[in-house]
Simulated scan of single mutants.
Amino acid sequence: MQTGAITPTIDVAQVVLYAFWIFFAGLVTYLLRENKREGYPLESDRSARAPRVPIQGWPSIPSPKTYLLRDGSSVSVPRPASAPAPLSARPSGPWPGAPLVPDGDPMQAGVGPGSYAERADVPDTTLDGAPRLLPLRVLAGFGVDHGDPDPRGLPVIGADGAVAGTVTELWVDQAEMLFRYLEVALPQGPSVLLPINFARIDDHRVRVRSLCADQFAGVPALRVPDRVTLLEEEKIMAYFGAGTLYATPDRQEPLL
């Protein structure tokens, strides 16, 4: 037998190769299972009359594992999914996966570009436990750079060209050191938050294409002034996202 041979038909290189194949297959299986700790089992809507069919796929979901969170609490995943909120939409056809058509006000239906995740109804925090998002009025040492336009006091113009309100404040993300929201005072009702990525700011105005002026009154309001929770952020972003499709009837029509 030659160097490295174990038997006349098996050598060390062959054993190492087979061991690598077994290790790699186990690694892929492990990673696929760990990837199913959130969102599984899936549910099929193949039948509107029969109970929804749970789908795990291959490999099956892993056994629950408990994680310790930064705030001292713990969470075990995977865990039984909570009962879904009633869907304010209906399928556009009888086949599985048919697009959903909103019922009632499409801006409030929570489907399509207006969908959102049921995140925790608590404020996000920085590494030291302080609220991550706060308005400038309660923060010392933060301000608008001298080279950038200060939107406070500027009118907010909706997609219809009408004035929706006036910017009164900026909200700072203390973890990322940037502005996340503009606080807009409406002619009637409480002030609302405008995600800054939906705004275009110049020296004279703030333009918003996703909403018409009168639709700003429907932006989800904050439960506590000077605090915004993760769930409130989801709903605010979803409302502006819904406007990109549902703000005007013509946005739902084909381009051609």
Rank of each mutant, 00 (worst) to 15 (best):
V138I: 15
A164M: 05
I157N: 00
T166E: 11
D145A: 15
D148L: 04
P151K: 01
V163H: 00
A130G: 03
D160S: 14
A162W: 00
D160C: 11
D124H: 01
D160G: 10
G147S: 12
R132H: 07
D128T: 15
T168A: 08
D128P: 09
A162T: 09
P131V: 04
V167I: 11
L136M: 14
V167D: 01
V163P: 00
P155T: 09
L139A: 04
P151N: 01
L134V: 10
G161A: 14
D150G: 13
V138F: 04
R132I: 05
L134F: 03
L139T: 05
L136V: 14
G153Q: 03
A162I: 00
A130C: 04
G143A: 10
R137E: 13
D160T: 14
A159V: 15
F142A: 14
L139V: 07
R152M: 08
G161Q: 13
A140L: 11
L133Q: 03
V138G: 06
E169G: 11
D150Q: 13
T125L: 11
P135E: 06
D150A: 14
P149N: 08
A159W: 12
R152Y: 08
P149S: 06
D124A: 08
H146I: 15
P149Y: 05
V167Y: 02
D160Y: 08
V167A: 06
L133P: 02
R137M: 11
H146S: 15
T125P: 02
P131I: 02
G153S: 03
G141T: 04
E169I: 10
E169R: 07
V156A: 00
A140R: 15
R152D: 06
L154P: 05
V156H: 00
